[in-house]
Design a protein around this nucleic acid. Structure first.
Lengths: 256, 256
DNA sequence: ATCATAGTCGTCTCCCTGACGATAAACACG
DNA sequence: CGTGTTTATCGTCAGGGAGACGACTATGAT
């Protein structure tokens, strides 16, 4: 085995790609930007960019998140003071197939961000080249776009795979953590939280059992001023996310 | 935002580091190698190495695994034919703090490998510079080594963090998947599987309830010839891993 | 023969969950 | 102003799974 030689290593570019998920109009959506350049020109892609020379991976992801959405990533270690435009950010996985970028060897550290519903995307200054796309539309949950897998509306590079991995991570993680509150504004109702679960999982949940589960789990929700708001029918109690991060026992998504 | 310019990117080195876990003598152990060079010379570190120019990340990890242990990583997609010296291999996370290697900017894609108990480590030809170290000894589950966190026996670089993340991944993943069988030989008894859980979680489990759970979960275990073996008392039935990869409902580790 | 060690089968109770009835509090109508 | 609709919230009930154990079985060690 060759010795660890700092001067003889293959040159890599390292980027971060972002899977930014939100719930809009009862559907799970992700932020995509239109490519203006050579490979996959005109196709939609996940936002991302190069990691700078003296920048940590998480910092690069947070920087890209601000540039693309204006969202401020909050540290999971921090206590309650979540800014109103805060988003959950975590590392997802790293993708480095030799041919994933035809121009050169690029290793991309994908990150997953969960954000509450936002007014409109602003692509770092360039408008209309970014949008919230329903995940179902991009992934075609039902075997999209004929043979080969490279359907019409599929994302550039291996971004479809990255998106699929990010969505699956989000779907499984809200089972056993309180992460679903990251999709909600600072104060929210039980019904709003339930609609988040329904949108992410793509299923319908029983309102009564859901209410019992989330209000009965200590530390999950704390009443926020006991106030109410309206969204249709009877006013609902407002909550904010409690300190608990782990849901035990978990709330398993219904099978089949 | 600067355009995607392939010729102007900061130079990175990309490596893979391996958290190879196994269960030896009732204890969760990991493979560590002794560093012979400049930074952290003489300290123990996780095995790893550079990703080659035309090599996929997973391939690089599998190559390192063979070089260090002789273990052959099997693809999770593959069916039953698991080689006797096969190991589970999956990507863990990527670590890229700017100062994690004092010599240059190195981004390391850590991987997690789970292997059955092996005779003895062979460090790619170099013996006695590799060993199976009990995880508890390396991580000091009980706030090891005074202040600062850089205790006496701690690993080089940020490898203690990587190891901790890998161990936590393994601990949580055997809850809801059949991954614990990766620590066992192709044929094993329920008691051996239980001792794996006990070693990984560091708890004692009720043999009766454990037996009921694993034999009652369809697809988890399949009887292997109905044969028996001895390990002390009454002979036990032999099983091999079934096709099921997900455990539903999960087997949650006891709290506190 | 007796003991120690493991494996395996049962039982009992508690808690959680899914299914679903019932009530409450707002709004949109006519 | 009543009625219907929508949503929130509380209750009830049956079934399943898990923790706590008792009991029995089949080996080897003494």
């Amino acid at each position: 085995m060759p010795a660890y030689d700092p001067s003889a290593f293959p040159p890599f570019a390292v980027t971060v790609d972002l899977v930014v998920l939100t719930v809009r109009r009862h559907a799970l959506c992700t932020l995509v930007v239109r490519r203006g350049e050579a490979p996959f020109q005109g196709r939609w892609a996940l936002p991302g960019g190069f990691v700078r020379a003296e920048e940590d991976l998480g910092a690069a992801a947070a920087r890209e998140l601000v540039e693309e959405t204006g969202l401020c990533a909050y540290d999971p270690a921090a206590p309650a003071p979540v800014p109103s435009n805060g988003a959950h950010l975590e590392q997802l996985a790293t993708y480095g197939a030799p041919d994933r970028d035809p121009r050169m060897r690029v290793v991309s550290v994908a990150h997953l961000a969960l954000a509450p519903d936002l007014p409109a995307p602003r692509a770092g200054g360039d408008a209309n080249s970014a949008r919230w796309a329903p995940v179902e539309e991009l992934l075609g949950e039902d075997a999209a776009a004929g043979a080969g897998g490279g359907g019409a509306g599929t994302l550039a590079f291996d971004h479809s795979r990255i998106l699929a991995d990010g969505v699956e991570r989000a779907r499984s993680k809200i089972e056993y953590s309180s992460l679903a509150t990251a999709f909600c504004p600072p104060e929210f109702t039980v019904g709003e939280l339930r609609r988040v679960y329904e949108a992410v999982w793509g299923v319908a949940l029983d309102p009564r059992n859901f209410h019992r589960k989330v209000t009965g789990t200590p530390g999950f929700l704390v009443p926020a001023g006991g106030t109410t708001t309206r969204q249709g029918g009877r006013p609902a109690q407002l909550f904010r996310a409690g300190g608990a991060t782990l849901l035990n026992p978990p709330m398993l998504r219904p099978e089949v």
